[in-house]
Structures are given as structure tokens and as C-alpha cells.
Simulated assay, not measured.
Amino acid sequence: MKIAVVAANGKAGKLITNEAVKRNHDVTAIVRHKNQTEAPQVLQKDLYDLTAQDLKSFDIVVDAFGVWDPADMDLHESSLMHLVDCLSGTNTQLFIVGGAGSLYVDAEHKKQLKDTPDFPKEARPVAVGMGKALERLKDRSDVQWIYVSPAASFETDGVKTDDYTIASNEYVENNEGESKISYSDYAIGFVDAIESGKYNQVQISIYQN
């Protein structure tokens, strides 16, 4: 498949890019600065400057953009909506590197992880910002989107185990009572989800068994 990864130099974006290259997909890294990935093609351009013309040839566009400064939380929503507008009415699938805060902790889907008492206060601004972007995304039936949440503990330096599950939009703990996933396993599961071709307009999650 022809895959473009927006913000490919980021922690998740880089691993997803390299995993897709490893599997012999035709990958383009979309970056603002010098490419730091293994992608054979590079488009050096700011996300907000991307156009429908830039993205029209891709089967998959991966949105790996993220910000953590509390003052920039609105960028989660505006950046995602810009990509959605670029892909509106096309057959290109938009896979989003999401957050865990929007996972539901009840079967009725009334309460999300970010609203539980033990959710880390320092992570809440990001969770709220990403949650608002996801709610806007759910209103867009004109785009083939897939929102991919990690487990609650998203471990930058976590061990690659190759032992993970792709699940629904509900919070899940493994047999040890943990909800975690390494960036490495997340990237593998992310590309697995792309290759499966079975998801559309849905939030999924990836957690370590």
C-alpha cells in the first residue's frame, strides 16, 4: 500500500513509519524538518500546509501529530480537522495515533478513562484535547477514519514483546491487572490494523497481553 505518515519524526510516527517500510509498503514520511526515518520518500511540509492534492495518491494517511504543552491543546482538534478536510470524500483511510483517555470504562459508554479518579492530573489536558478532537471526528461520515488508542500506560522505552491484542474502544487490563503497551508493540499492532482492512469509522485500542 501507499502510506503517508504525517509527523513521521515523532516517537510513534517514526516507529510506525519504519515498521511499514520493513513490511515493504510504499511509505512517504511527511515532516517539517529533515527526515529521521527509513522512509524512501519524503515530503517536507507543515501539516497545516498539506492539501488534498498532496494526499490524493495515498491508500493510507497516518496522523501521528501530537502536542503536550497545555497552551496548545486546541491543535489536536484543528490539525485533525485539517487532515479530515483534505481527505473528505476520498477512499483514503485516515489512521490516527490517539490517546487512552477516551477509552470507555463502562459497558454503557457513559464514562471515559480520563474522567476516573485515578487518571493522572498531569495527563488530563492532553486527554481532554485529544478527546475533543475525537468527538469532532465522530461527526464526520465523509472520511474513512480509524482512531487507534494505546493502553493507559504508553511506554516510550517499553520492551517489544510481540504479544498484544487489538481491541475495541473499551478500557482493558491484562491478566496481571495492567493496561500497558510499549511504543514498539503499538507500532506493530498499528500496522497490523492497517493491513487487516477491516476497520472503518471506529475507535480501536492496542494493549499488551
Rank of each mutant, 00 (worst) to 15 (best):
D85F: 12
F65W: 11
D72R: 13
L94P: 04
R23I: 13
F119Y: 12
P125G: 08
Y183G: 10
P125F: 04
K2T: 14
D59S: 11
D54Q: 08
N174A: 07
D106W: 01
V42K: 03
Y147Q: 00
E38C: 14
C86E: 09
D118H: 08
F119V: 02
Y186K: 01
F154R: 01
S205Q: 00
A52M: 07
G131E: 00
V128Q: 06
V105N: 00
D118P: 05
I96G: 04
A12H: 05
D26Y: 09
A64D: 01
D118E: 09
G129W: 00
N18M: 05
A20D: 12
M73V: 11
D115H: 06
D26K: 09
I204H: 03
M1N: 11
I96P: 00
D106L: 05
D63F: 14
K22A: 15
T156A: 14
N200V: 15
K198P: 03
L134W: 00
I60W: 06
P150H: 07
H25Q: 11
N9I: 09
A127P: 01
I146L: 04
D59E: 13
L80H: 00
A7W: 03
H25W: 06
T90Y: 03
A8G: 09
K14L: 12
A187P: 01
D72H: 10
G189E: 12
N24C: 11
K114P: 00
S149K: 01
K180P: 06
A52D: 11
Q36Y: 13
C86V: 07
D185Y: 13
T17L: 13
Q112E: 03
Y186R: 03
Q53F: 10
I188V: 15
F65Y: 12
K132H: 03
S182Q: 02
T92S: 09
G99Y: 00
T37H: 07
P117N: 06
V62G: 07
V6A: 15
S184D: 12
L134D: 02
V21M: 08
M81N: 14
V159W: 10
V67I: 11
N174V: 06
Q93C: 11
H109P: 01
K56D: 09
G89P: 02
A20H: 03
Q93I: 05
I204K: 02
V172A: 13
K14T: 08
D163L: 09
K138M: 04
R23N: 05
W145D: 06
D59N: 14
L75E: 13
Q53Y: 11
S78P: 05
K180H: 07
A64S: 12
I60K: 06
S179R: 01
E19M: 11
F65I: 08
R23V: 15
T116R: 10
Q201W: 04
I16V: 15
N175G: 14
T165L: 12
K2R: 12
P120I: 10
E155W: 08
G129S: 02
L47Y: 03
V105D: 02
D49Y: 01
A123L: 15
W145V: 07
N174H: 07
D106Y: 04
F58R: 01
G101R: 00
Y171K: 00
T17P: 03
D69M: 06
T51M: 08
Q203F: 00
K56H: 08
A193W: 05
R136C: 14
D118L: 11
